Amino acid sequence: MQAEKRFEDKLTARLRAQALAPDDELWRRIEVARPRRHLWPWLGSAAVLGLLLVQEWPAGAPVAPLFTPYELLAQDRQLQQAYLDDANDQQLAALWRQRNALMDEMAQGHGESK
């Protein structure tokens, strides 16, 4: 029991005498030995998924635009404001006709037909 206690004391003293931070060379070796993550499996999966989507996309199906034209947003705001202002049926019908005409114009501009 005494021998174990002396060994522990000597070991503790020796460990405390050593520097706590590893040197820069050790960190360089750890960095070099660290396994790298490979992206190719993920990129391959993404490519296959993209090809499947393109292949399965219906031919001639229209693709929705990624943005809404300003004119349509302005027309929708006018409609919303008319509803908030309790506009009569004639005023609302006129605004809806304007919006539908704008939608028809936009559809013709994109090669779609109604």
Rank of each mutant, 00 (worst) to 15 (best):
residue 114 K to D: 09
residue 113 S to D: 08
residue 72 L to H: 02
residue 90 Q to H: 15
residue 3 A to W: 04
residue 44 G to K: 06
residue 77 R to I: 01
residue 55 Q to E: 14
residue 9 D to S: 08
residue 62 P to G: 08
residue 81 Q to W: 00
residue 30 I to G: 04
residue 94 A to W: 00
residue 101 A to F: 09
residue 35 P to C: 07
residue 57 W to F: 14
residue 79 L to V: 07
residue 4 E to M: 07
residue 92 L to N: 02
residue 24 D to C: 06
residue 10 K to D: 07
residue 9 D to F: 11
residue 28 R to H: 12
residue 22 P to T: 03
residue 82 A to P: 00
residue 91 Q to F: 06
residue 21 A to D: 11
residue 84 L to V: 06
residue 46 A to S: 09
residue 18 Q to V: 13
residue 69 P to S: 07
residue 7 F to R: 09
residue 57 W to R: 14
residue 50 G to N: 06
residue 5 K to V: 11
residue 26 L to A: 14
residue 106 M to I: 09
residue 67 F to L: 06
residue 44 G to A: 12
residue 12 T to Q: 11
residue 45 S to K: 10
residue 111 G to Y: 01
residue 53 L to P: 01
residue 39 L to R: 07
residue 20 L to G: 12
residue 17 A to W: 03
residue 67 F to D: 05
residue 111 G to D: 04
residue 104 D to N: 12
residue 50 G to Y: 01
residue 82 A to N: 04
residue 47 A to C: 08
residue 41 P to S: 04
residue 32 V to R: 05
residue 41 P to N: 02
residue 37 R to C: 01
residue 13 A to C: 04
residue 112 E to C: 12
residue 3 A to L: 10
residue 35 P to R: 09
residue 64 A to K: 14
residue 37 R to M: 03
residue 79 L to Y: 03
residue 103 M to G: 10
residue 92 L to V: 15
residue 63 V to P: 02
residue 96 W to I: 15
residue 107 A to F: 00
residue 51 L to M: 11
residue 66 L to R: 14
residue 26 L to I: 15
residue 86 D to Y: 04
residue 69 P to A: 05
residue 64 A to Q: 14
residue 57 W to K: 13
residue 92 L to F: 05
residue 66 L to P: 01
residue 74 A to Y: 08
residue 33 A to L: 00
residue 4 E to W: 00
residue 4 E to G: 09
residue 54 V to L: 08
residue 112 E to M: 13
residue 68 T to W: 03
residue 83 Y to N: 14
residue 36 R to V: 02
residue 88 N to S: 14
residue 56 E to R: 10
residue 112 E to F: 06
residue 17 A to H: 06
residue 100 N to W: 10
residue 27 W to V: 14
